[in-house]
Design a protein around this nucleic acid. Structure first.
Length: 331
DNA sequence: TACCATGATTTGGA
DNA sequence: TCCAAATCATGGTA
């Protein structure tokens, strides 16, 4: 390989062949280095000063440091050291960079977003859980208290999550700034390349990111526990109100020949009873099968509602009820 | 506490 | 997807 082609070598070349770059013989730079001997003496001199700097008092050392910083050879030497360091360090560290995004973190982020813990505050998870509960036919007015409890607990989790996240982000920023300042300060006395600073920042971010992952994980667990408690609660059976049962029974017995309410009828009944369409479907399913199994037992109830229906029909001609029948069968 | 009532869920068929 | 049938799980009551 042609070493002279390496960018790091330009600095050295400029030391060895000053005449190529500076022909004016000015004060600064490398005038007077007609051969390599003087250059080598210069470098040896600098190295000697660096080696002895630890044996000196603070004041002396500061003065020496200043003198070194102002030395005409310093930029060139520094540049070469940086190049060498970059070259030797890269091969070892390249493997650590450009890590793909952790799939677990992606899952956690998605879940927190879906639950309404991360991202903009909205109905989110509470609404999702409630909708899951209602779609399977579970939300009665009684559960509104549980719902508000769920929402307030989720809100607490959200608040804690955001506070902690903010703390971590602030700590990360502060620590990064501190380290960067430290490295910049050190770069005056030792070769620290900008890429090295970037790498250090990336390392710090990775460390803080792993802490954030733990926070996200525990937040997800808390949401899951809360959610399972809420969904378990929905399984608790609550009897419908007397009025709701009456409305359903009225419809059932007045449509005994065909007790299969249409989707519209179910929606209307659900609205009247303060229950969901699924609950109406469940109720009719249970009622049909139980009536069919034991018509005798339900006869009294059937008569009662038939009477009610007849009374209603006599009071108003526009009665919504259809004529009664004794047998169940789909039409 | 046992028993019955009842709402919800599961399973299998059309 | 809707329904029947069976079953589960809980509420209410004697």
């Amino acid at each position: 390989m042609d070493e002279s082609g390496h960018p790091g070598m330009h600095a050295l070349n400029s030391v060895h062949q000053p005449s190529q770059h500076r022909s004016d013989g000015g004060e600064s730079g490398l005038e007077g280095t007609e051969n390599g001997h003087e250059t080598r003496r210069d470098i040896g001199d600098i190295l000697q000063q660096i080696m002895t700097i630890t044996d000196q008092s603070l004041d002396e050392a500061q003065a020496k440091k200043h003198a070194l910083n102002c030395h005409r050879m310093k930029p060139a030497l520094f540049s070469v050291l940086c190049e060498i360091k970059e070259k030797t360090g890269l091969s070892m560290r390249n493997t650590q960079e450009e890590e793909p995004q952790d799939p677990q973190l992606v899952r956690l982020d998605n879940m927190l977003l879906a639950e309404g813990v991360a991202g903009p505050e909205k109905g989110g998870g509470a609404a999702a859980a409630v909708s899951a509960a209602t779609s399977s036919g579970g939300m009665s007015p009684d559960s509104s208290l549980e719902h508000s409890d769920y929402k307030s607990k989720l809100s607490q989790i959200r608040s804690i999550y955001h506070t902690e996240l903010e703390k971590y982000e602030q700590a990360c920023t502060e620590f990064t700034t501190h380290v960067m300042n430290l490295l910049r300060e050190q770069s005056r006395t030792r070769p620290v390349t900008p890429r090295e600073i970037e790498r250090m920042v990336a390392i710090i971010h990775r460390k803080f990111s792993s802490i954030q992952t733990q926070l996200k994980q525990s937040t997800c667990e808390a949401v899951m526990i809360l959610r399972s408690r809420f969904l378990d609660a929905r399984r608790k059976r609550r009897n419908f109100s007397k009025q709701a049962t009456e409305v359903l029974n009225e419809y059932f017995y007045s449509h005994l020949s065909n007790p299969y309410p249409s989707e519209e009828a179910k929606e209307e009944l659900a609205k009247q009873c303060g229950i969901t369409v699924s609950q109406v479907s469940n109720w009719f399913g249970n009622k049909r099968i139980r009536y069919k199994k034991n018509i005798g037992k339900f006869q009294e109830e059937a008569n009662l509602y038939a009477m009610k229906t007849a009374l209603g029909a006599r009071q108003g001609d526009d009665s919504p009820h259809t004529p009664n029948s004794t047998g169940i069968g789909r039409q």
